[in-house]
Amino acid sequence: MLDFMDHVQNAFYTSTNWNVDNGYTRLNSSAQSILDFRTPRGLRFHLSSLSTPNFATSYSLGSISVIDGSLSYLYSTLPLSSPKSADVDLRLLSPGYRQHHPWKYPSPTRDDALMYGRMFLPSGTLEALYLKRLGATKQVRVTAVSDSKLKHGGTILAMLQQDTGKWSSEYLYSTDVALLGWRGLWNFGEADPRPEGDKPVGRFSGGAEVYYGVLNKSAGMSTGLRYTTLPQHPGIPLTMTLTLNPLMGHWTATYAVKVGEKAAFASRFEFNMFSYESDIVMGAELWRSKGEEGMEGVLKAKMTQNGSLGLLWEGRLKELLFSIGGAVDFRRGEGMVKVLGVEIAYSS
């Protein structure tokens, strides 16, 4: 389940017409959200509220080993809609299969900004985020963390994002190891409002990323390709991706398919051609609806090659949102349950 603040940020992106999905890091987001869901650990409560349309607060309290918690504040120059836990669409909070649409040119927007800070207790770690739109196609995103345990006391990551619809690119710099990075995505095909003719049923996208750590003189890169069906596709929606890390010889192939409104399946196969190591993960998400009002809950499950099973059940109980999950390893006799957790959230 998405954090309240993540949800508010998504609302900000939506309000400012920023297409988060049009980026290289979201190339295989469909498979990722089905396979790499986060399972809660321990008991955790979230209490959030959008006090004014521009200001939000959130508190969380958890108990994994010791009582720990965090308090966060968010300010947006753009008034945001209030995501109450009683009536928010669960699909926004628990993203699953991602339906892509034909790309379109960005529409002009205001230069809005968002600021967010979070303090973790009792560790004293401080997180901060600054988000600023620069015209119709650009956005600056700066994140920082301050923690005495980290090297140099903290890290700042600055990112310039550019999205023209047809293509997108991101330039980033991290103060940790002086990491420089670039990543880009290219969408093949025509823009959405086609003047005439039949609409496309699918779309290819290709991209790449390159990183270089100045201080540790290490580099990293990958390249990827995606095919996804568009809403006009007559058959079942599906997304296929193939990524390659040429330095490490690592291939990753994902396949995600949406079967009807309530079910989606995904699989991921990884192979390293240098070490001959391989891995396969399969997962599914099953939605449960309640009449016409939308979705009531979702069950996510994944199974890995080494026999471990991850389960997550998220839903709404009255005005509370809950998330129950755990990981089970069948190969271990006793102590099969490795992780178990419950999260309860209320927001107004």
Partner: peptide, 22 residues
């Protein structure tokens, strides 16, 4: 590098951090 970095300031690469154990 990413295994020790904080999540919020992670550059979040897609596949550049693929593991290779030798």
């Amino acid at each position: 590098y990413l295994s020790t970095a904080s999540s919020i300031t992670s550059p979040g690469p897609l596949a550049a951090n693929s593991p290779l154990t030798i």
